[in-house]
Simulated assay, not measured.
Amino acid sequence: MSGIMYERIPDANHAVFNRHAAARRAEFRIASTELRPQRTLAIIDGCAAARQHLSWGLLSSGLGLRMATYGSIEDIEEHEAAEFSVVLVCADDSRLMDNSIGPEIEALVRRFPSIPVIVQAELCGPQQILSVLEQGACGYLPGNAGISVCIEAISMALAGGVFVAAENLHDIQRMLGIRRYQFKCGGMFTPRERDVIEVLRQGKANKTIAYALKLAPNTVKVHVRNIFKKLRATNRAEAIYKINTMFDEMV
């Protein structure tokens, strides 16, 4: 099933035509008298009314892109995708929660690697946003984003950037910082030493660490000594300071 194309034409109101008609024109080399922009935005949304409303809103804003709308990712045909400059996927929250849409987004990015993909959804938790970005998307829009925010995200994707709404940016940066911190610690410390560090950062004594981790006090003492050595710290205060500094740098 092919999508529907919407575009703004000079000296006329919005025109709508079926993509199959365009394909037939191309097949028989029928010249078109319509003036068409070079770039196309593909909107994928399971709700026909929603995708039509968004496409007309973006057209009215003067974005300067043609709009091709589809009910699902599977509806996109190869010859159509060749004309896309950016793809906007409007995702259902339930599919984000169980991550069932994740493989589809990842497959879409692999299938058309040169086309930036933006995801829009009501659910804007940092975990969902980060997951979508890790699957290759170039942006994440909240479901209540206005036309101006959509244009900003599309423009940034076309320029090669990644868009995340301002209200979500701090949480995403923090999560990325934690992951970088964990990665760095993973290369420097053993798993048991990382467990000790988490309690050590709270300022706990060795006996408390031993009780919390169900370890012998002498074992904790060995781990703490090894942590000091790796950090080149001479005491607990210096070790905690260096660990916290390392974490702050990542965040």
Rank of each mutant, 00 (worst) to 15 (best):
E7G: 14
I178M: 15
S114W: 14
Y140I: 04
L96W: 11
R174A: 09
E77F: 10
V86N: 04
A31R: 15
E238F: 11
G62W: 02
A107G: 04
E104W: 03
F84W: 00
T219W: 06
A21Y: 14
C47I: 11
I172M: 01
H53T: 09
T208I: 13
I243R: 02
V196A: 07
K204I: 00
I172S: 04
I197H: 04
F84E: 07
C150L: 12
I9D: 12
V162C: 11
H20L: 09
N13H: 13
A212V: 11
I30D: 03
A137T: 00
E122N: 14
K207L: 15
N99E: 15
P191R: 07
L54M: 14
K204N: 13
V164T: 00
C124V: 13
G139Q: 06
F247Y: 12
L108A: 12
V109C: 12
L213S: 00
A239E: 06
S85N: 03
L58W: 01
F17A: 02
G143H: 09
V224H: 07
L54Y: 05
P116C: 00
Y6K: 04
L133K: 07
L133E: 02
I243E: 03
T245S: 04
E122I: 05
R225M: 10
E193C: 05
F189V: 02
F17E: 08
I76K: 05
F17K: 08
L96G: 10
L96R: 01
S72H: 03
L54R: 09
A48Q: 05
G146Q: 08
I172N: 06
C47G: 07
Q202Y: 14
V222W: 09
T219Y: 00
Y241L: 12
L54K: 09
